[in-house]
Design a protein around this nucleic acid. Structure first.
Lengths: 242, 242
DNA sequence: GCAAAAGTGTTAATGTTACACCCATGT
DNA sequence: ACATGGGTGTAACATTAACACTTTTGC
């Protein structure tokens, strides 16, 4: 955001108005890849507002809970993630007045990346909960279209310089599995040969297990696990269009 | 964040506890460069808690206000920014229970980048408000050390792939001014010759005004304004140590 | 053998680094 | 003339991109 500060200048120190009553919620953008498409977990709202509309899973913060704890709890309520490693990061906070007709609801959005998960379970507020291809759903409840767009944008950007792509893969995985993540999330085709070398030249991005996996046809592929790298050197740069 | 989900599995749909009373605040990490050092705007708290301690400027959200609006308002109260362009972006939200002894205060942190600004004005909660070199101050109030660290880290990272560095510069600026930003924020020395070419090879990072500025001694330097680019291609990569 | 997918080699284009050298100015 | 920063040239090196080619499997 860049602004041409139009705030009308200096305001003298005055007592603040008493803060309005606020509810704090956590909403989750949970992404995975299913059938070669980027999918997001959506719920069908079982009660007003936006009854029957699709929405991101989420819920209100409980007493004494920190944001990460609430996000993990909601994740557990919406999906079967016991014992799995997954990526979870805070995305952004949304507080526009009127974004929730029930009143002043501030939502802290989280981005979660998971391998293809078992079918989700029904959540508390949810009449139904299911994976949907991103873009293959109507408008979402509240400002969730905007939140989802931010989440997808963040994921696309982080593929370049972080090992996030590996979070989409069930371990162990092949280089082709990993390449498919990049291709699906970025919506581009990558050269398998160059991709293979590039991934292996990045320090600690993936580590070979020594095992192999037989594809439907063709030479067996080496298997890998996620490495310890938190940033990629060099980065996996997105191909430039022109 | 990567976690080994230890949430104990599925929780049945239960009515949520009524949300606790929450106050929503906006805190600002305002960075600038003064005397060749990265500086942050801090206030000395005029009342408890943490009376007399340094803290990030900030305040509570007012009725009907969105987060960006509150951040801009606070910025106007703490600094003289009328008519200036500056960079402002949401950083992260902090809600750990106990982070504020007054109760459940959730803080949405913003990162602002500005050219060397005139001396700040006294804010509402502030006994004093001043620029301090980052690191050259004691521990801050609340969890503001953590927030500041996140802000600085974000700024360092964004110098690489965004034109953020130019937000530190008063327009018009020279290439050497811009280089100084990178050197100060990253804490490294850069080759002036290579830097010059690199900046000019990045599309729309800076645009020449056609004017020149005379340094204390030496050849006059060409002047530039910020370009329209939002991402840098190619990126201004940080030198690798080894 | 053939198809299919994995993986290696090679080369040209592009980007990065180090540093020699020239330019324009004040003293 | 000399010091001081601004700016260009150039060659070694690294990274990327395009694609020919080899490997290992199932049928």
């Amino acid at each position: 955001m860049t602004l041409s500060a139009a705030t009308g200048g200096y305001s003298p120190p005055v007592p603040r108005s008493s803060p309005p009553a606020i509810s704090l919620a956590v909403d989750l953008v949970i992404l995975t890849i299913r059938d070669g498409k980027l999918n997001v977990l959506l719920i069908e709202r079982g009660k007003p507002p936006f009854r029957g509309r699709l929405a991101l899973p989420g819920g209100f913060l409980e007493d004494g809970e920190d944001l990460d704890e609430a996000a993990i709890r909601e994740l557990g309520e919406e999906t079967n993630i016991e014992g799995r490693n997954l990526h979870l990061e805070q995305l952004r906070t949304y507080a526009a007045p009127g974004r929730d007709p029930r009143g002043r609801v501030v939502s802290v959005a989280y981005l979660a990346i998971a391998p293809d998960l078992p079918p989700p379970v029904a959540g508390s507020d949810a009449a139904a909960s299911r994976w949907m291809p991103v873009g293959g759903h109507g408008p979402l409840a509240f400002d969730h279209d905007e939140i989802l767009a931010h989440g997808v944008e963040r994921a696309r950007a982080k593929l370049e310089y972080s090992p996030l792509a590996a979070a989409f893969c069930e371990e162990p995985f092949t280089i082709a599995d990993l390449r498919s993540v990049y291709e699906v999330v970025w919506g581009v085709a990558l050269d398998p040969r160059n991709f293979h070398r590039k991934v292996n030249s990045v320090g600690n991005f993936v580590v070979p297990t020594g095992e192999r996996r037989q594809p439907r046809s063709g030479r067996p592929a080496a298997l890998y696990r996620r490495g310890q790298a938190t940033v990629l050197h060099p980065a996996m740069l997105r191909p430039t269009k022109p």
